[in-house]
Write a protein that binds this DNA or RNA. Sequence first.
DNA 1: ACATTAATTGATAATGGTTATCATTTACAG
DNA 2: CTGTAAATGATAACCATTATCAATTAATGT
Lengths: 171, 171
Amino acid sequence: MTMEIICINGVQFMLREYGKGHKWCHGQFKARGYRMTLGREAILDVLAQANRHLSAEDIFMKVYKVYPNIGLTSVYRTLDILVNIGLVHKFDFGHGRARYELAEEPKGRRHHHHLVCTGCSRVIDYEDFIDEEVALLKKTEEALSIKYNFTIMNHLIQFYGLCQICRNEGK
Amino acid sequence: MTMEIICINGVQFMLREYGKGHKWCHGQFKARGYRMTLGREAILDVLAQANRHLSAEDIFMKVYKVYPNIGLTSVYRTLDILVNIGLVHKFDFGHGRARYELAEEPKGRRHHHHLVCTGCSRVIDYEDFIDEEVALLKKTEEALSIKYNFTIMNHLIQFYGLCQICRNEGK
DNA sequence: ACATTAATTGATAATGGTTATCATTTACAG
DNA sequence: CTGTAAATGATAACCATTATCAATTAATGT
Ligand SMILES: [Mn+2]
Ligand SMILES: [Mn+2]
Ligand SMILES: [Zn+2]
Ligand SMILES: [Zn+2]
């Protein structure tokens, strides 16, 4: 429980297995005046390596394995910060809990939208927009901005339906 | 507390002040095998006359005024049914509680999307650019259906930003 | 009108994700 | 190394939504 052992082990382990590929996130984080801690670093690592949309508890459990000192509260707090900064996107897919995902980076993951299966709750990312989709989106945003005097910061676009598996099962 | 008085008063009052303009909803409701009760009728009335997006408690309070027997549980249950039937849309605007809105009817309200102000939580309906938007949406949906073998049933499109008032206040 | 019966109801308690508290620990500028 | 504000985690509280269940009621047939 002393920070020593876990800290030493944690740091060394992290420096090897983690702490890669999100220097940019670190920069953004500290640039905003936030302190970088082991917990926060681990959370960023988990998010960076996630291939699905994680809940706060998902993240907590993954972080716990490498950093047992972590508390669920800190996960929520860190996610809150990350969402406010814009480094992480928070989604509600109707599963009763929020899901988080690393936001697009300069030369990292691209912006995308979601297909949500109402049968099995799976979520599919898609970013292969038709060029037209982007064009109309921009056009719509501009028109709306003017008509409603509304400054659009971002958008949420989700399609609900049934994935192949669920459709075959007749759910 | 006896059903008599409230029932009689309620019915008469409702027949005058309410119970208009949503015969279609009633039909849909009963056609699905659900029974029409005073509470459910009052809920439909409140939804039909709402000019904003109501929470379950909003609805409860409005119904309570004309039908004090109503229970919050029944509001939730009825809304659940209405959402499942497709007569009502349930939204999460990030306010911590679900918001409900009567769905589009054959010759009633039109389908629309939302502008959500992150400053004051106001929500603006817009259906202006829907035609063009819908055309491309359909196109996008078709492309996605094929590529991901995903049957799209409906979509959620929201734009987040700042309304005029909040922008001026520098929130 | 009346009896029958399954649907519906509302009071109440429980659930569960998220937040607030607060004493303790820690990152980091000086 | 020190001082100090930021960050943490254990814990309790919050609060929207659900589950439970006995009582009521709408609808159907007589
Ligand atoms: Mn995604
Ligand atoms: Mn609306
Ligand atoms: Zn599915
Ligand atoms: Zn506003």
